[in-house]
Simulated scan of single mutants.
Amino acid sequence: MTLANRLTLTRIVLIPLFVVVFFLPFWWAHFVSAIIFSVAAITDWADGYVARKYNQSTPFGAFLDPVADKLMVVIALLLLVSIHHHLVWFVVASAVIVGREIVISALREWMAAVGQRASVAVSHIGKLKTTLQMTALIVLLTDIKLLYPVGFIALGGAAVLTLWSMVLYLRAAWPHLLSEENQ
């Protein structure tokens, strides 16, 4: 078990703690859940850094890392929708982000199966989307109303970039999706 894989597993282990703390009936619960989410986000960066720097990339890590990322983001969005369900745009933005993750995960899996994984590699737009998304989630998880505008703007930006990056991924994959040998 490599250090990179241990960091990824740590992120998954933090999920139940993150959810339980979020729902604790204390004034500090949301702020602490934001800290737990932040630690998980740091492990996401750290496991990738460690895997590249120390040549610790493994098939298990390649599978588990995106699963851990998506679990954290989807669960954070679900928790936030429980607070902001009255904001239709917030629910739609959250659904767009979750829906895109499902579509792109399936697309990457299919592209890998047909030997075209590199066609749907992570782009700079995806990295910017992730940065905005993580910023929005951390800020909104604190549940500090003064910071809501920052979180809402970041989440809206992340949702727009989510759609844009999905279009770019689908456009890159489209010739492979339509090729006769893959039908």
Rank of each mutant, 00 (worst) to 15 (best):
N5Y: 06
F26W: 14
T10A: 14
V88Y: 13
A95D: 14
G61I: 03
I83N: 02
K53A: 14
G48P: 04
P66D: 06
I144F: 15
Y49W: 14
I83R: 04
P149R: 08
F60M: 11
A95W: 10
F60R: 08
P66M: 05
F63C: 12
T162V: 09
L64E: 05
V67K: 10
P25I: 06
D143H: 12
F152H: 06
W110I: 06
E181R: 08
W89D: 07
A95Y: 10
V160I: 13
G99Y: 11
W110S: 04
L146P: 10
V19K: 01
W174R: 00
A154G: 03
S82H: 09
A118V: 10
A118F: 09
P16C: 15
S165W: 00
I35F: 15
L155S: 01
L3K: 15
R100T: 00
F31E: 10
V122C: 07
D44P: 01
F37K: 00
V98P: 04
F26L: 12
E181D: 13
K70R: 13
N182W: 07
P149I: 08
I42W: 15
G99E: 14
L3N: 15
I15F: 08
E180G: 12
L17N: 05
S179F: 07
A158H: 04
T162W: 00
H85D: 01
I144R: 04
L177Y: 06
W110K: 09
H30Y: 09
I102R: 12
A112V: 06
G126Y: 03
L161H: 03
V21A: 05
Q56W: 01
I12Y: 11
V114I: 12
D69V: 06
A172H: 08
L64D: 07
L64K: 10
F152N: 04
F18K: 00
L14G: 05
T10L: 15
V114C: 06
I75Q: 07
I102W: 15
A113M: 14
G48R: 00
V150C: 06
D69H: 12
P16N: 15
V67P: 07
L9R: 10
P149W: 05
N5E: 08
S179T: 08
R52I: 13
W27A: 12
S38I: 02
H85N: 06
Y169K: 01
L146I: 11
H84V: 01
N5A: 08
S123M: 04
A4L: 02
V150L: 12
T142C: 09
W45S: 11
H30A: 07
S38W: 09
Y49N: 10
K145L: 11
A51T: 03
A41V: 10
L80T: 04
L78R: 11
L9Y: 14
D65W: 01
M166H: 03
G115R: 15
L79H: 04
L137A: 07
Y148E: 10
D69E: 08
R117E: 15
R52S: 13
V139Q: 04
S38M: 12
A46T: 11
D143Y: 07
V73Y: 05
W45T: 12
R108F: 00
L132K: 00
P59K: 14
T8M: 08
A106I: 11
F23G: 11
I104E: 03
N182G: 09
A40I: 02
V139F: 04
Q56I: 09
Y54C: 11
L132E: 01
I15N: 08
P66T: 02
V139H: 02
M1Q: 12
S179C: 10
F22W: 06
R171D: 07
L17Y: 11
P149N: 07
F31R: 14
